[in-house]
Design a protein around this nucleic acid. Structure first.
Lengths: 183, 183
DNA sequence: CGATGCATGTAAGCTGTTACATGATTGC
DNA sequence: GCAATCATGTAACAGCTTACATGCATCG
């Protein structure tokens, strides 16, 4: 158990937050929450999550208790006092310039160079994108409704942000489509 | 020079696109474009870009020509025919479900767990975020105007997408702020 | 009694970062 | 002549991924 508070990585912060929300819960539960949410981009593969939580345990940020009533050897996780301090610090580091502008978008990255495709391919490409994005938007909306009904205010506000960004991206793709068709 | 077309990474694709746009140009120029643009999140550190371009050269995707009139030993880059094919393929892979939903946002990640902060700290935090985001939005708008005047249509459309996302995020933060103040 | 889901992990690798290091050119 | 910018790189490492591996529990 180290003594100084270390800066948490993104996945560490999110995972710790989930543990805190559902504690006591298993690592599996954390993973399920990450996978199920359309608002986070994390794959949260077993290969990253389990070692990550072990590390947090070694540092005294989470505490584990083996669940003896369970034959699968599962462990129940809780955030320690020290862990709650780490979590607070992680949340507070969001108000920093590097986090403001760091929203990657692989579709936008490609838009800059869309002219390498033939006009016909550009149109097909955009049509596919818009159709996929519409599907994604409706999934995001469904998820938002579910969270809304659950009464989880912060979960709702987070998911709302995800939805607004998807809406903006879809709107943008339609603008691009109109612009490239009339040319 | 390998024979089969390899899938390009994000930074490889973007860098190759930039070379294609400004060729013949130096690696330094590519790096400057990446750093200057508020629409890409890439740091494009020397430590990633130079080895990356060397790799693309070894694979016959870009061709280099030493500029003998320059004492700094700079090299001029061009996209090869083979490279243009790679670039086309990279652009076309954008229409794929994994790219649709993969927009990370460290601020949104934290919003889900904002309740770990005291109400007073939540308000301060949001106020700081909104002020930083407004500044970022105005920078993005300035950049968009510049690109617009340059006549680069695809550059404009890409930057437009970046701006729309920033607008959506700012709008979202204001909704959150109202919601948390009235509570 | 077999499929699906719960539950935990290891090994290898990809993609990018920061920090460090070097040297020439250009403009004031 | 000195500072800022141009120009290119190496070394170490952070952070996450995929692919693989294992085994119990629950439901039909």
């Amino acid at each position: 158990m180290a003594n100084s508070l270390r800066k948490l990585s993104e996945l560490e912060g999110v995972s710790l937050g989930i543990v805190g929300k559902y504690e006591p819960c298993t690592a599996y539960r954390v993973r399920s929450e990450l996978k199920q949410s359309p608002s986070t981009h994390w794959q949260a593969s077993a290969g990253s999550l389990y070692p990550l939580l072990t590390r947090l345990e070694e540092e005294g940020i989470v505490a584990t208790k083996p669940d003896k009533s369970d034959g699968r050897g599962r462990k129940l996780l809780k955030v320690t006092t020290r862990g709650r301090k780490s979590l607070k610090e992680w949340v507070a580091t969001g108000a920093d310039e590097t986090h403001i502008s760091s929203v990657t978008d692989p579709i936008r990255s490609r838009m800059f160079f869309l002219d390498v495709l033939s006009p016909a391919k550009q149109r097909t490409y955009l049509a596919v994108l818009i159709s996929l994005m519409e599907k994604h938007l409706s999934e995001t909306r469904t998820h938002l409704d579910e969270v809304s009904e659950s009464g989880d205010v912060y979960g709702y506000l987070g998911s709302l942000g995800a939805m607004k960004v998807v809406e903006a991206r879809l709107d943008w793709l339609k603008v691009v489509q109109r612009r490239l068709i009339t040319d």
